[in-house]
Amino acid sequence: MARLDDVNGDAALVQRAREGDGAAFEVLVRRYMRPAYAVALGVVKEPADAEDVCQDAFIRALERLDDCDPVRFGAWLLRIVRNRAYSVRRYLGVREAAPLDALALATGEPGPHRMLERSRLRRDLLAALAGLKEVQRQVVLLHDLEGWKHREIGALLDLPEGTVRAHLFHARRALRDHEALKRSKEG
């Protein structure tokens, strides 16, 4: 799991990617895709938009790779992801969010009961997350989905560790109290 302070090997990979080594760049993409997705989802809320943000951000990062300090690649990339996510959100600002039900069902092929249940839970989680403040969403996704530490999240979001803890507390409580998630548990 990629972390901001997990710089082992990043510098060498960045150097090789600068020379056009696709294999090295793919390792970086695989290493940082999940945190990038969590950061993007925290801003744009829609999984499909988060994927687009990640793709754009990786390409922009590759184009500007010569500007990056190789040992700080992770933090640098995730800032590009955040900025890209803000741009996409501004661009989509006037667009109404796609109904989450339709979105969740669109990705769920007809299949076993378990898949359907998971798809429903995903839909409810997205609905609950959409109700959080943006910073809460980012914190809870990075912490509970990606397993980042408070300190690392604070470094990425420019927040004191205590503030990160507070956001996490409120985010978790709001998610637990969310009607859709309560129904999911009961159902």
Partner: peptide, 12 residues
């Protein structure tokens, strides 16, 4: 502190 939520359904 509330317990960690299982957000794995959102894992890409």
């Amino acid at each position: 502190e509330p317990e960690r939520l299982d957000l794995s359904p959102l894992d890409p």
